[in-house]
């Protein structure tokens, strides 16, 4: 598994296209099961939001994904470095993204973090 992270609009998708040249499934609107056969999924933080809204267990979905599609490239924004949100649903989402992202990072051979389009390998190697 490969994880690509960083803030919004830092060049994560462009990095994936340049390095892996594969199709990217949009986690913001894709079918949940299609992720299990995808090469790459983007917006995993939004996928987490949709899973919560759908009443699914984010941790067990993510664990199943790490197990059953272990070559997946996951693009996920860093969203946790702010003020604790006022809305309970936003707080829950933020925490679930943190936990799911940590699970993906743990199961990834390589983790890349981008800022200003510049990649830093923070786990494993490219």
């Amino acid at each position: 598994m490969i994880m690509i992270t960083g803030g919004a609009y830092q060049g994560k998708k462009d990095f994936v296209k340049a390095h892996y040249n594969c199709e990217i499934l949009n986690g913001d609107n894709c079918d949940f099961e299609s992720v299990f056969t995808a090469k790459c999924v983007s917006n995993y933080h939004q996928l987490v939001k949709r899973l919560i809204e759908n009443g699914d267990d984010v941790a067990s979905y993510t664990e199943r994904l790490c197990r059953d599609n272990s070559n997946l490239i996951v693009i996920i924004n860093e969203i946790g470095c702010g003020i604790v949100p006022l809305e309970k649903s936003d707080r829950l989402w933020r925490e679930q993204v943190g936990l799911a992202g940590s699970l993906i990072a743990k199961n990834s051979d390589t983790v890349v973090r981008l800022i200003c389009g510049i990649p830093a390998v923070i786990k494993g190697e490219l």
Partner: peptide, 8 residues
């Protein structure tokens, strides 16, 4: 240091 649920 880190954000929410980042394993700190």
């Amino acid at each position: 240091i880190g954000g929410s649920k980042c394993g700190k």
